[in-house]
Design a protein around this nucleic acid. Structure first.
Lengths: 161, 161
DNA sequence: ATTAATATAGATCTGTGATATCCATAATAT
DNA sequence: ATATTATGGATATCACAGATCTATATTAAT
């Protein structure tokens, strides 16, 4: 269970775009050179980001990519979901098994019609909670906040001296 | 990016063991039957859990598995890490690239010897934060708390009537 | 208009890891 | 002794991440 390299590339590329915003477009050559990854591969990733309206692409000479929105409206969560897909991070594969009905009998009489409601997979319940928890964090962190933090960190370092 | 089925099986198996604690051992046959997965495959998973001291294994006739510790000392985090491995969920693959040094020049003069300290990968910094955040949640949720929640949920349902 | 630069989309290749099964071996209760 | 149970090794299969190549479309500059 690991985030893909594509996600890594996407986030780094967006940070680069955010950082170079005043200088206009950034071509795939500059991007791939900076990140140390092939143009071909990075193109695919940038295409995905474009299809989801995170970046704009300008074809032709002097073309390239730029952020399609202000950097504070591009969250880590959205980027991750575009690249990794929007499927749940945990899915119970035992829904057909006896597991859940067995546990449902835990000291109480359980009527059949209630089962689907309040006796869903216990594991999934916890894991979905974890997922929502994580979403919150990843929603609060944007390309902008990340750039800002870097800026402040370096400034503080200088002021301390 | 998804949790593996093995993790699913492991957590369900442990819930089953926790639930059947008073009845003694549970053999692989009962476990695999309840979860709807082959004995062979589940064995491997149980072996891992044993090697990490989460369950005890009793070979021979009437053997089986039982929790090696109280259910409230087996967290989701530990189970996940045993099955999925303890590698980070995000690793920056661009450490050699120019990305980070470029961003480090963000409006401040940066001395070379400080870089390794305070100008590490920005993406990794955010993602590691997310990981720690998630760890906290997964540490607080144990086999016991999950069983308890199921019990309370069903009880409340009954009392409401 | 032509050319060079740039992005896009399709096809394909490769390696790795998750999922799964089978078999031989060890341990233990009856 | 025998049947039962767990363990470990070897292996098979399959999907997917990672990556590359080529052909095509679009645009700026000449």
């Amino acid at each position: 269970m690991q985030f893909s390299k594509s996600t890594d590339y996407a986030l780094h590329a967006l940070l680069h775009l955010g950082h170079s915003e005043r200088h206009g477009n950034v071509g795939i050559k500059e991007l791939s050179g900076t990140l140390g990854v092939s143009e071909s591969y990075l193109s695919k990733i940038m295409s995905k980001l474009r299809q989801d309206g995170i970046v704009r692409a300008i074809p032709g000479v002097n073309g390239g990519y730029e952020l399609a929105r202000p950097a504070d409206q591009i969250s880590f969560l959205e980027v991750i979901q575009v690249i990794e897909g929007r499927q749940q991070w945990f899915e119970c594969s035992n829904t057909n098994s006896q597991q859940h009905s067995l546990l449902a009998d835990n000291g109480t009489v359980q009527r059949g019609r209630e089962r689907s409601d309040n006796c869903q997979c216990l594991v999934e319940k916890v894991m979905n909670g974890a997922e929502l928890h994580l979403y919150q964090y990843l929603r609060e962190h944007t390309i902008q906040t990340t750039l800002d933090e870097a800026f402040n960190r370096c400034n503080n370092e200088v002021n301390k001296k």
